[in-house]
């Protein structure tokens, strides 16, 4: 099953590689991993999307907790949560037809065209993974020049939060 695990870790040199090395050394799967500092610059927030049986997910959370740099961890999948991913997409937009069709799709999905070139558009779209997947699928493949996805960031809904 797919799980979204969110963690706070010390913003130390090597903290990211410890997490990445743990996944490769123990043969766990990473679908995506994002990390950036929080309001407290000594602390980073990481979101990992992974897949595995209940036993594997249990081991992943335990092994992550065991890393000295990991301060706190929550499996967001266990409660209601909000997940978002950012997509930057560069597409061919050479003919009027292409431009109109792309503009229409971007509007439907609630994205924005953030850069207009001579024969291309760059699009920004945020949303759940599924929405991003659907948008990429909706664009005719020959038109796609470049796909950049940020990976998933996640947060709990309501009163729940991950903080120290």
């Amino acid at each position: 099953m797919r799980h979204t695990i969110s963690l706070l870790l010390e913003n130390e040199a090597g903290a990211l590689s410890r997490v990445a090395a743990l996944f490769s050394a123990r043969g766990y799967n990473i679908e995506s991993l994002t990390v950036a500092p929080t309001q407290d610059p000594t602390m980073s927030r990481m979101t990992i999307v992974t897949r595995g049986s209940d036993g594997v997910i249990e081991q992943i959370t335990k092994q992550l907790n065991k890393l000295i740099d990991v301060i706190k961890l929550v499996d967001l999948t266990e409660g209601t949560n909000i997940e978002r991913e950012l997509l930057l997409l560069k597409v061919k937009a050479a003919t009027n037809n292409q431009r109109e069709e792309i503009k229409r799709l971007v509007d439907i999905f609630g994205g924005r065209i953030i850069d207009v070139g001579e024969a291309n558009y760059t699009i920004e779209l945020t949303g759940k993974c599924g929405k991003i997947d659907a948008f990429i699928k909706a664009i005719e493949e020959p038109l796609i020049i470049e796909v950049v996805r940020s990976g998933v960031s996640g947060i709990s809904r309501g009163n729940k939060s991950l903080h120290i």
Binding site: A13, G14, S17, R18, A21, A25, I68
Partner: peptide, 16 residues
């Protein structure tokens, strides 16, 4: 050294 020993230590440090 920090990279090489990472998988076989409880923790490691590089002093800067």
């Amino acid at each position: 050294s920090v990279g090489i020993t990472r998988p076989c230590v409880k923790h490691n440090f590089l002093i800067d």
